[in-house]
């Protein structure tokens, strides 16, 4: 019944109201002492020399994409998990096949080094001698 969800709506509205009031309070209560330095970026006292809108490591994109793949997998698992007891062996085998296909992808990602983060040597990388020594020291 949709009416059962009404308390949740009330809860969300009140939570928003609470957050809005809390955010508005200092504007009423707090002092106002404007000062040019207060409005500058905080970078540990050093005057910032570059904007933060810049490129960042591609690894973050890769993690996001892998997440989408595996999260969709998990979403398929939820309805399956609830009715597994009623469906029995049939559902178990079906899901095993589904998972097996995804596992192939997972192993591929692992072998290609998609799950490795900086500091490690990936197959196919142009490796400078000193880097190899460094990563070996890390593993020990």
């Amino acid at each position: 019944m949709a009416i059962d969800y009404l308390p949740l709506l009330i809860l969300i509205i009140l939570a928003m109201g609470f957050a809005a009031i809390a955010m508005g309070l200092p504007a009423v209560l707090g002092p106002k002492l404007p000062n040019k330095q207060k409005y500058e970026p905080y970078e540990s006292g050093i005057i910032p020399f570059a904007d933060a809108r810049r490129r960042f490591p591609v690894q973050y994109y890769l993690v996001a994409m892998l997440f989408v793949v595996f999260d969709i997998e998990v979403i398929f698992l939820y309805p399956w998990a609830v009715i597994l007891n009623r469906l029995g062996l049939f559902a178990l085998v079906e899901m095993a096949i589904f998972l097996l296909i995804l596992l192939v992808g997972y192993v591929y990602c692992w072998k290609r080094g998609a799950l490795d983060w900086g500091g490690q040597v990936r197959p196919g990388d142009d490796v400078v001698e000193s880097q190899v020594v460094e990563s070996q020291v890390e593993e020990e």
Binding site: M16, A19, A20, M23, L25, P26, A27, L29, G30, P31, K32, L33, K38, Y39, E40, P41, Y42
Partner: peptide
């Protein structure tokens, strides 16, 4: 509650204010 409200000049103001909520 009694702290001064500071919005730095370099931020993306609407998103900056909505994020804590």
């Amino acid at each position: 509650m009694f702290k001064e409200e500071i919005v730095p000049s370099h931020v993306d103001k609407p998103i900056y204010l909505v994020a804590p909520a």
